[in-house]
Computed example of a mutant assay.
Amino acid sequence: MSILVELPPDQYDRNAFANFNENSGDFDLDIARAMMWMSQLAYETHVPKTIETVSGFWDLADVRTLIQPLKSTLPLSDTRGVIARKGGATIVAFAGTDPLNLLNWVSDFTLGRPKAFVHEGFREAAAAVWNDVKAALTSAGAAGAPIFITGHSLGAAIAVVIADFARQQLQLTKAQIYLYGCPRVGLVEFVTPYDNMFGRMTYRLVHGTDIVPTVPPPQLDFLHVGRYLACQRGARFVAGQLTPDFGSNEPQPNAGLVQQLINLFRGRSLNMRTDAVGNLSVLLPPGIGDHLPDRYLAALAPAQ
């Protein structure tokens, strides 16, 4: 993974779970904050010491990492994630792709309408870890434990496919699904049954001009899942602005893909980190800078 998505343990918020309510039945900004921090932790699967340290001050139990190599139609080498328990809840979080490869990743969505109802690359990435996740979700379901599934970027797309696997194979009917910078995952044949089961329990957050939620383009018949919550670059998410129901396909591309990629290099993304990496990240084009996990963490931070 790139240093753009890695954080040393001392930069993790020790209070990320301070107001986490595992029994909440609807969108909650405190849960959204905790789930984004879990999505951040999923980027650290190759740094076991960070996961061990952070899990300790968050009081996570039964922490397991997911690292499965795969051959995929997307430019990634493996699927990475974390499974843990917090109190009585089971949390499954997935890491996204390296932001330094993001333009290549985005360019892979220019190949035309897929033959399958869900993007093949997303399905391959989810299938690589499904057996491990299936076991955790089966145990949680048998115990009647709350289930949270989350991810950032590609990790958000994997989270959606994993939830749908659970719907079909485990008859899972209840889970809170928090998505950050999520791309469109599938066609209407995939999205309709997903939303009918999980649409109101799926919360899709988009920060600023993040390019990833604009792909694959709707012109290829791809649709978003769940309820939609956006915030401006450098602002904070407001719970009351979440769409009351699923069905939104925002954000829309405001230009053709080529022009969209050109526009990425106009202007700068606001910096939310004070370390050397943060200082350098202001040079990133806004569509990529706004996508970084630390930008989502800042947009979910409690107001001072």
Rank of each mutant, 00 (worst) to 15 (best):
S2Q: 09
L7N: 08
L7S: 09
P8A: 04
Y12H: 12
N23I: 03
S24Y: 05
G25V: 11
D26I: 09
D28Y: 07
L29K: 13
L29I: 14
A32N: 05
A34N: 08
M38K: 03
Q40H: 08
Q40C: 07
L41I: 10
L41E: 07
Y43K: 00
V47Q: 13
T50G: 08
V54N: 06
W58E: 11
D59R: 14
D59Y: 09
L60N: 09
V63D: 10
Q68G: 06
Q68E: 15
P69H: 09
L70M: 13
L70T: 08
T73Q: 09
S77G: 14
T79I: 04
T79C: 09
R80G: 02
I83G: 01
I91W: 02
I91C: 10
V92G: 03
L100N: 15
L100Y: 02
L103D: 08
N104C: 05
V106R: 00
S107D: 13
D108E: 15
D108C: 09
F109H: 03
R113F: 04
R113W: 00
P114T: 11
K115D: 13
V118G: 04
V118C: 13
G121K: 01
F122S: 00
E124F: 03
T138N: 11
S139D: 14
S139M: 10
S139H: 09
A140K: 09
A140L: 11
A140F: 10
G141W: 04
A142N: 14
G144A: 05
A145W: 01
F148D: 00
G151S: 03
S153P: 01
L154F: 04
A159P: 03
V161D: 05
I162H: 02
D164R: 06
R167M: 12
R167Q: 11
Q169T: 08
L170N: 10
L170V: 10
L172M: 15
L172F: 09
L172P: 10
L172Y: 08
T173Y: 06
T173M: 08
A175H: 04
A175P: 05
Q176Y: 06
Q176V: 06
I177S: 05
G181S: 02
R184G: 04
G186E: 05
V191M: 04
P193A: 05
Y194M: 04
D195C: 07
M197I: 14
F198S: 06
R200S: 11
Y203H: 15
Y203D: 09
T214W: 00
L220E: 13
L220G: 01
H224P: 02
V225K: 03
A230S: 13
Q232K: 15
G234Y: 06
G234V: 08
A235E: 14
A239N: 07
A239T: 07
Q241E: 12
Q241K: 15
Q241H: 12
L242N: 05
D245P: 04
D245S: 15
F246Q: 03
G247E: 07
S248D: 13
P251Q: 06
Q252I: 12
N254E: 11
G256S: 14
Q259D: 15
Q260L: 14
Q260H: 12
N263L: 12
L264Q: 11
A276R: 13
G278M: 07
N279C: 08
S281I: 01
P286F: 00
P286S: 11
H291C: 00
D294P: 07
D294L: 05
Y296M: 01
A301H: 09
P302R: 11
A303R: 12
